[in-house]
């Protein structure tokens, strides 16, 4: 089935280009901004943040530690110093609140690579490829934790492309660009969203961290949905949408509660009917959301009452 591209052409028509790319632009600003903060030191001598995403020190007082690396360290039977413990708790708390996979879509530099691959894949109309189970990442996650314990080393950091890229850009890339290029082509030709949505244990870990997170994307105006499928086309985890978007009949609330949702907000951008918005998990009242903003002509969604 041929699609008209860009995916968001209806949204662009109704909201303007900027309106249809608002969250995407903010995300890129966040991703590049964080990278920029780390690079400001080595490039300009302005030391606001030192280190990298594994562990950092901001303004010489605020320690932050990646809780996934931290967990592997504990399993490798090293008890860290206080600063790493505080840093890990801070990061855990933050993502437990705003959504674990906010790390993926707002911080992780590999996301820029894989988003580009996904965009190009849509653009070129590439379909098919090798199917991978979406829960492979949890297997990989379990494997890294097991192997960290078995070998007594922080094992994922030997090969973690996320660290490779982020650390590489700050401290020196070496041959890591080969791996990143590999991920790009893997996502482009082999499996759609292959790395971030199927294999990466970092994202799997953060999805667990954010399984009860407060900040969520919601579809309060789902009654207005015209089934254009644009949100499904751009979503890196499209299976998280249906329960919220099409749950009215089943009595399911409009909030996307699946912890795999990355809170990227791209669905909000590309929807010409403004079905989606950022909300909280507590805003999941069913009938109220359905009746607050009734859209004339779309009634078949509002049944069962």
């Amino acid at each position: 089935m041929a699609r008209k591209y860009p995916v968001a052409h209806e949204a662009i028509a109704t909201k303007g280009w900027l309106g249809a790319h608002r969250w995407l632009i903010l995300r890129r600003l966040s991703q590049f901004g964080i990278l920029g903060l780390f690079l400001l030191g080595p490039l300009a001598g302005l030391w606001i943040v030192k280190g990298n995403l594994a562990a950092s020190l901001t303004l010489d007082v605020l320690p932050l530690t990646d809780p996934y690396v931290f967990l592997q360290m504990l399993l490798a039977r090293h008890w860290p110093e206080l600063s790493a413990i505080i840093g890990a708790l801070l990061v855990l708390g933050f993502y437990a609140l705003v959504g674990g996979r906010v790390y993926c879509s707002w911080v992780c530099p590999v996301n820029i690579v894989t988003d580009t691959a996904a965009w190009l894949r849509r653009r070129l109309g590439l379909r098919g490829g090798t199917r991978l189970a979406g829960d492979a990442r949890y297997w990989v996650l379990a494997m890294t934790l097991l192997m960290s314990a078995a070998f007594g080393v922080i094992i994922w950091e030997y090969v973690n492309p996320v660290s490779m890229l982020q650390r590489g850009l700050i401290f020196g890339l070496g041959a890591a660009w080969v791996v990143i290029l590999g991920i790009f082509f893997f996502d482009l030709f082999v499996t759609a969203h292959g790395w971030c949505s199927h294999l990466c244990p970092v994202g799997a870990f953060y999805s667990l961290v954010g399984s009860k997170s407060v900040v969520r994307v919601s579809a309060p105006r789902r009654a207005a949905c015209d089934d254009c499928m644009d949100c499904f086309a751009v979503c890196p985890e499209p299976e998280v949408i249906p329960p919220a978007l099409r749950g009215a009949k089943k009595g399911v609330g409009p909030v996307i509660l699946d912890s795999l949702c990355t809170n990227c907000g791209r669905c909000i951008d590309v929807c010409s009917k403004d079905v989606f918005e950022f909300s909280t998990r507590f805003n999941n009242r069913l009938p109220a959301a359905e009746s607050v903003d009734p859209v004339p002509g779309v009634t078949e969604e509002r049944t069962s009452s």
Binding site: W47, K50, A54, H78, G152, F171
Partner: peptide
């Protein structure tokens, strides 16, 4: 060394300082 690889998170803070 064996313990080092269980403890070092590769953050580079030592490098920076």
């Amino acid at each position: 060394e064996e313990q080092f690889l269980s403890a070092c998170v590769r953050c580079g803070l030592c490098v920076r300082d």
